[in-house]
């Protein structure tokens, strides 16, 4: 599956459009991570646990989007955008959407 966040797949021609595909995931951190982050908060610096969480949720959202595109018979997703929202306290929603297309 080719993924890009530009209008086209550079170097390839789009032959068919399938419309919008999307994937989202809501992740919460667990208490242990929260506690460690609280400690780390005293001295500042990178919160590795949260970075991982963010990475995991991004991959999950993209995977769901990819699955949906594959179901439609697409072989690429163009114009991908990421968005975030905070649904509940301590949980983050990561949302990916794009246009499923078929390229040559």
């Amino acid at each position: 599956m080719i993924m890009t966040n530009v209008n086209t797949v550079p170097g390839k021609k789009i032959v068919e459009h399938f419309g919008i595909v999307q994937g989202s995931t809501v992740r919460a951190k667990h208490v242990g991570r929260d506690f460690m982050a609280g400690l780390k908060n005293l001295v500042g610096g990178e919160l590795k646990g949260y970075t991982e969480l963010l990475q995991d949720s991004r991959q999950e959202a993209m995977k769901r989007m990819e699955d949906q595109a594959r179901q439609m018979g697409a072989n690429a997703v163009v114009n991908i955008r990421f968005a975030t929202s905070s649904v509940a306290q301590g949980a983050a929603e990561l949302f990916a959407y794009g246009t499923a297309v078929r390229v040559e």
Binding site: I2, T4, V9, K40, G45, E46, L47, K48, L54, Q55
Partner: peptide, 16 residues
């Protein structure tokens, strides 16, 4: 030749 989505993330916290 090829194109692909790449991404990176970082969480930085503030100190006391």
């Amino acid at each position: 030749k090829e194109s692909a989505l790449v991404s990176g993330s970082a969480v930085i916290s503030i100190d006391y």
